[in-house]
Design a binder for these strands. Structure first.
Lengths: 205, 205
DNA sequence: GCATTCAGATACAAATATGTATTAGAGTTC
DNA sequence: GAACTCTAATACATATTTGTATCTGAATGC
């Protein structure tokens, strides 16, 4: 198998990506603080030299990792909300979206790590909040439009509701991950569905 | 100032408690994995010798810490729910309870650490789930009774709703902690109040 | 008050982390 | 293809952490 000869830039980019991928796996597995730079480099098939030549620090790499994940989530979500679906389809799609988006738990754990890290590191917190608020805004806009379409008043300020929904979904998925027998997939759907419907329809739909 | 002469048992118990208190502070500040046994001992005014003579491991101490916190929360909550308050008072008290219970952030952070640790450590997860489910049961029972009193059907299985509410509250408080300007105390009250009311009253109360 | 016992300090050995400084080797330029 | 340049490996010096093994001094019991 003839291995393609890479240009310097290509090669560097490949290294970067491999380091990022490796970091996601290792950090999800061991946790951000317990993950050494060497762990990441080694798992990617390099040495620490490669790491320090591509990133300033572990924190630096981590925020980039989150940004990438965030962007792909935002894209998926935006796409879903923009598609002109019937209410029924939309609800089904949204439910599916949220039960899939953390399917392998990696992404969930990374964001949980991030939240915890943010509590302690003000600079990191600011950068993370930017991402969270972007997500909030997409959801808030959707909530607003949805209520408009349903000809119902907003039951509370949309941005507040959006953050609350993010909280609700994330926390519920946590229970789904750590006690799948107590919070089954069906329970997630039922609980979230009930609360969504009650909040935005005013009664069970 | 005549310092009381302590018996061996008293002295040992004091050491234990001091280590636990110190651990809460340091772990909340630096995070569980980043906190060394030495950090804890030193902050309590001892050396590692004292630590290892009182606890098997950091994980061991940590679960004890959580148990203590859990017990005091359970007690407060139980007391609140058992008191025969008017619906209005109860709602006010509950709101206050939840905005106070993480007042200094320490407790919140410890539970966040615990959740993350639980994702990775199966043994720890089991022990933590016991605590979570105890809390869930108290809340589920309350939800059931409340709906009965209101003569309303349960909108979904009470245990599922209880976990969802725990998720909602915790996550919302997280935003309140990390972006207090975006999720103000007033926002917390408004968002939680709206969702509670919608879910359990079927309309805004 | 002397011998005993136990809480906690001290000493030690092994492992792991970090960041930088230097080096080797492959890509680039002409 | 020779000089150059950058990526990533290697070497190094320093700092932490861990658990255990041993020691000391203060409570206990006779």
């Amino acid at each position: 198998m003839p291995r393609k000869r890479l240009t310097r830039e290509e090669s560097r980019e490949q290294t970067r990506l491999r380091l990022l991928d490796a970091a996601a796996v290792v950090i999800a597995k061991k946790g951000l603080p317990a993950t050494s730079v060497e762990d990441i480099a080694e798992h990617a098939g390099y040495t620490r030299g490669a790491f320090y030549s591509n990133f300033k620090s572990k924190s630096d790499l981590f925020i980039e990792l989150l940004k990438n994940d965030h962007q792909s989530i935002q894209l998926d979500l935006q796409q879903l909300l923009d598609a002109d679906l019937s209410d029924e389809d939309l609800q089904r799609q949204l439910t599916q979206f949220y039960s899939q988006c953390y399917r392998d738990h990696t992404s969930y754990v990374l964001w949980a790590e991030a939240r915890l890290h943010a509590v302690r590191d003000a600079k990191f917190r600011q950068r993370l909040n930017v991402l969270c608020l972007e997500k909030r805004d997409v959801i808030a806009y959707f909530i607003t439009e949805f209520c408009k379409r349903m000809k119902r008043p907003l039951p509370a300020p949309a941005p507040d509701l959006a953050l609350a929904m993010m909280a609700l979904i994330d926390g519920t998925l946590y229970f789904n991950i750590t006690m799948p027998n107590e919070m089954t997939d069906a329970s997630v759907e039922s609980a979230l569905g009930t609360i969504f419907a009650a909040t935005f329809f005013g009664s069970r739909g």
